[in-house]
């Protein structure tokens, strides 16, 4: 029941959106009482820095076919990782690539997808989450009873929160 977060990187570097997604996943995991596990794909830099934002573990997937972003391949890698770590919730930042893969991951996992999240869930059972709607003219409180969830968070809504934890990096 871990929380898996996709730690997107650009040319070997993480951006603020990634640290924000990891921060969100760490606080969600803390609320649930489980671990936040980050996954990087074809990332050449130092993945352990994700521990500064609360990732308990980092999975690094390296494969030549993943050196270039591809919706399907990246979604498959994240789905495989979510199965591997028995994650019920996958967190993704709503970047361009995040927007591309989140629906695919949700469809493949038969998971409920809540996009544009701006806060941690107000309740866990049912899982209720505030998100932007109507082109930021309103907010909607979404709810799901599904055990499997994919949450994509609006960049700059949650903020980056540093929490130092001991991180183990495993390379696949």
């Amino acid at each position: 029941m871990a929380v898996l977060v996709y730690a997107e990187s650009w040319n070997g570097s993480f951006k603020k959106a990634t640290f924000e997604a990891v921060s969100y996943a760490a606080q969600l995991a803390n609320k649930i009482g489980t671990d936040a596990i980050a996954i990087t794909i074809a990332h050449q830099g130092d993945a352990n820095q994700l521990g500064n934002y609360g990732a308990n573990k980092v999975l690094t997937i390296t494969d030549e076919t993943l050196n270039t972003f591809n919706n399907e391949s990246y979604a498959n890698a994240i789905v495989a990782a979510s199965n591997h770590v028995n994650a019920e919730t996958v967190v993704i930042s709503n970047t361009n690539n995040g927007k591309s893969i989140a629906p695919i991951i949700a469809a493949k996992r038969e998971a409920a997808l809540i996009t544009n999240a701006i806060e941690l869930p107000s309740t866990l059972s049912p899982f209720t989450l505030k998100r932007k709607a109507f082109s930021s003219k309103a907010y909607a409180l979404f709810s799901t009873d599904s055990n499997q969830k994919v949450i994509s968070i609006t960049p700059n809504a949650f903020g980056v929160h540093q929490i130092q934890v001991s991180t183990i990096n495993r390379i696949f």
Partner: peptide, 27 residues
């Protein structure tokens, strides 16, 4: 469309492509 301007979910296109097992290009 990449999303609808009411719910702004952007979820249907990728899900539909996955259910039909065809390639998907967003944005």
């Amino acid at each position: 469309g990449r999303e609808s301007i009411d719910y702004n979910g952007g979820a249907v296109p990728g899900m539909l492509a996955t259910f039909l097992d065809i390639p998907f290009v967003n944005a």
